[in-house]
C-alpha cells in the first residue's frame, strides 16, 4: 500500500488524501463562506433612496445610475435651493417674479448635466451595458425635472406671487428642460445643452417682454402656454430621434 506523508505540501498536491480527509469539499465550503463574508464586509450599505428607486424602477442597476446623477448630488441640490432662495428674496425686494424666471433656467441646466460624455465619468463603459443609456437618460431627466418642479413650487409659495405667476413657470420649465435635453443629446455635450437652454430662455423672456412691455410676459401670458408645450413636445421628439438606434451622428454611437 502506498505511503502518504501527512505534511501540508503532500496533501495540497494529492487528490487521494484530499478525498480521504474531505478536504476538497471543505475547501469549496470555506471558499463560499469567505466570499459571503467578504461581500458583507466590503459592500457598502444601500441607501434608502436607492432602495426605494430600485423597487420603483424594478432595476437595481437603473436605481444605482439614478442616485449617481451628477446634477442630483447634494452640492448641486443645495446650490439650486440657494439660487431659488435668493430668487425669493429678490422677488420680495423688487416685486418682480424672479423665481418664475429662474426656475426654468435652473431646470434646463440641471437636465443638461444629468448624463452624457464629459459629465458621467464612466459614460463610454455604460454604452456597453445591458441597461441602455436611453433608459438612464430618461430616468435621470424625469428625476431632475421632478425635483426642480418641487423646488419651483416651494419657492413660488414663499414668494407669494399671483396664482398665474406661481404656476406660470411650469410650462416654460418643461420647454426649457426639453430643449436642454435635445441639445445635449444631439450635440453630445452638456455645455452645449446648458448654453442652448439658457440662450433659448433668455430669448423667450426678452422677446415676450419686447412685445408686451413687461418683463414677466414670458411666464404670465397664458397664450404662450400652448407654444411652450408644443416646443417641449418637439424637443422630446428630437431627443428620441437623437437616441434612437436608427441614426448615428458622425458615424458614431450605436445605442
Amino acid at each position: 500500500m502506498q505511503c502518504h506523508p501527512r505534511d501540508e505540501g503532500h496533501v495540497a498536491a494529492c487528490a487521494d488524501c484530499q478525498a480521504r480527509w474531505g478536504l476538497a469539499a471543505l475547501d469549496v465550503r470555506l471558499g463560499r463562506v469567505w466570499t459571503g463574508v467578504a461581500a458583507e464586509v466590503w459592500a457598502p450599505s444601500v441607501g434608502r433612496v436607492e432602495r426605494l428607486a430600485g423597487q420603483l424602477l424594478r432595476s437595481p442597476g437603473l436605481a444605482r445610475a439614478l442616485v449617481n446623477t451628477p446634477s442630483l448630488v447634494l452640492s448641486w441640490i443645495l446650490a439650486s435651493a440657494l439660487v431659488l432662495a435668493l430668487g425669493v428674496f429678490v422677488t420680495h425686494s423688487t416685486d418682480r417674479p424672479w423665481v418664475a424666471l429662474l426656475a426654468p433656467a435652473l431646470a434646463g441646466v440641471a437636465i443638461a448635466y444629468s448624463y452624457g460624455p464629459g459629465v458621467d465619468p464612466a459614460w463610454e463603459l455604460s454604452q456597453t451595458m445591458t441597461v441602455s443609456d436611453r433608459q438612464v437618460l430618461l430616468v435621470r431627466s424625469l428625476a431632475v425635472f421632478g425635483l426642480n418642479t418641487l423646488f419651483g413650487l416651494a419657492a413660488s409659495v414663499f414668494s407669494a406671487q399671483a396664482v398665474g405667476l406661481t404656476l406660470g413657470w411650469l410650462a416654460p420649465m418643461a420647454m426649457v428642460s426639453a430643449l436642454a435635453l435635445a441639445a445635449a443629446t444631439t450635440a453630445r455635450s452638456a455645455n452645449v445643452g446648458a448654453a442652448v437652454a439658457l440662450c433659448g430662455w433668455a430669448m423667450a423672456i426678452l422677446g415676450s417682454a419686447a412685445g408686451t412691455d413687461y418683463l414677466t410676459a414670458a411666464v404670465a401670458e397664458g397664450a404662450l402656454i400652448p407654444v411652450y408645450l408644443a416646443g417641449a413636445v418637439a424637443c422630446v421628439a428630437v431627443t428620441l430621434w437623437a437616441t434612437s438606434g436608427s441614426r448615428s451622428i458622425g458615424g458614431v454611437l450605436w445605442r
Binding site: 466590503w42 459592500a43 457598502p44 432595476s59 437595481p60 442597476g61 444605482r64 445610475a65 449617481n68 458621467d120 465619468p121 464612466a122 459614460w123 463610454e124 463603459l125 455604460s126 456597453t128 451595458m129 445591458t130 441597461v131
Partner: peptide, 28 residues
Amino acid sequence: LGYLPQSLGYYPNFTVFEFVEYFALLKE
C-alpha cells in the same frame, strides 16, 4: 460581454467594490 476602454472613466468617490458592483448591476 466584457469591455475595458482605453481610457477608463471612474467615479472618484466610489470604492473599488462599489465601482465593480455598479457595472455588475448595469449588466443585469
